[in-house]
Amino acid sequence: MTARTDRRDQPARKWRSSVGILRVLLYAVGLVPAAATFAMGLANRLGPDPVNVFERTLGLWAIRFLILSLCVTPLRELTGVSLLRYRRALGLLAFWYALFHVTVYVGLDQGFDGAVLLADITRRPFVIMGMAAFLIVTVLAATSNAWSIRRLGRRWRAVHRMVYLAGLCAAVHFILSFKLLRAEPLLYAVVMALLLLYRLLPDAIRRRRLAQR
């Protein structure tokens, strides 16, 4: 065992540092849609309702990254391809986009109008769903560091299972943001539902592939 590790020491270190580079790259690429849309807005290129377009684009990317982060486990269990190293980055990107989305809603869209915001957040299921998803991913982002993982121990997994609830709330929030049932949010909801239902499968089925290796 030791001999093998020794022999592989060099490439392993290289691999580890390339993981780091890839992770930084993932953050950089992941934030491109936000930066590009913001730049287009500043240049007045988002059409006649720029705030609305910006707000929706940010929300859409939040849900996309949430879905990607939820794909990591099934992908690993079903195909053996492990992107576990990038899961936290994907989750954090979902959080950043959710934060941008909420910031634009509160600031640019509603102009920090406390009365309207309070009414929205307390009375409207559409907004409540979105806010619930945002609060959950905020908690998950805040406890995603190594210190929290150590500190929370066994409870960390339980806390981070709340991501399933966040995914559900986000999908419903997206559907409700249109006047009619629309194909795009439905498609996202179906993908989200499949990813959540997968978690309900018995371990025997889920880990068959891993056990074979």
Partner: peptide
């Protein structure tokens, strides 16, 4: 039921993000 009707976003108020206050 899903959003407030108290305010509105004027369309085409030039100036990108900050030109179109509710």
């Amino acid at each position: 039921p899903r959003w407030s009707q108290a305010t509105e976003r004027p369309i085409g108020a030039r100036g990108g993000f900050f030109g179109a206050a509710r």
